[in-house]
């Protein structure tokens, strides 16, 4: 048998989806940071997390390949060291005073308390392009949770609220189980929060 007839295969990479997911995670991280400041419900939800708490959302596998190649294709603000060396991540930290801060994508030297891991890039893509709602993705085992499950529920709830703020109704309806009626959340609140969060997320 000529063994060379059957070469070893190194499957490639999915450039577009990686860039998209990285930008979306960055947006979500920033948006949660802002929403925690401006929205009472988000603030209350996040208050349930312990202080000095670090949360990470990432796409498996960690540290798969340095992203030097992608650095040029990404907008400058998204490129940070974490993204280049550790793959796609989003780290949020709640400090002693209870303030939420987006810490970028570099896990080095940080103790991660809650780790939410998309099993593969395709899973992250489906969730972050709203083809699958958070609940459906959870049902389909698209991500796994490391750490206290209770905190991940808090995070998922925050994610739902932020999605309702940021997305137009027609898309948000796909992303959450139940789109709030007028009585549950007024359109005015949605609209004002949407504008505020977008502006502040992209400027600060």
């Amino acid at each position: 048998m000529n063994i060379n007839k059957y070469p070893e295969i190194h499957p490639g990479k999915k450039l577009f989806k990686r860039v998209y997911v990285a930008i979306m995670l960055w947006t979500v991280g920033k948006a949660i940071q802002v929403a925690a400041k401006v929205d009472k419900e988000v603030k209350e939800e996040l208050a349930k997390l312990p202080d000095n708490f670090t949360l990470r959302m990432m796409v498996a596998p960690e540290k798969a390949f340095p992203l030097f190649f992608y650095a040029k294709t990404l907008p400058a603000f998204v490129v940070d060291k974490g993204l280049l060396f550790y793959g796609i991540q989003m780290i949020l930290h709640k400090d002693k005073e209870g303030k939420i801060k987006y810490l970028g994508a570099d896990p080095k030297g940080k103790k991660i308390d809650l780790n939410i891991v998309f099993k593969n890039i395709e899973a992250a893509w489906m969730v972050l392009s709203f083809q699958e709602s958070t609940a459906t993705a959870y049902m389909h085992d698209r991500f796994v949770v490391e750490g206290d499950l209770v905190h991940s529920l808090t995070f998922v709830r925050v994610l739902d609220i932020v999605e309702i703020f940021l997305l137009p109704k027609i898309i948000a309806k796909l992303a959450v189980k139940r789109y709030p009626k007028w009585a549950e959340m007024s359109p005015l609140r949605k609209f004002v929060k949407r504008v505020v969060i977008y502006i502040r997320a992209y400027t600060f």
Binding site: A135, Y138, L149, V150, L153, T154, V156, R157, K177, R178
Partner: peptide, 13 residues
């Protein structure tokens, strides 16, 4: 009830 994992799989929020 917000702290329990079973809330995820329920059809209605």
């Amino acid at each position: 009830t917000m702290q329990d994992g079973a809330r995820m799989a329920n059809p209605e929020e």
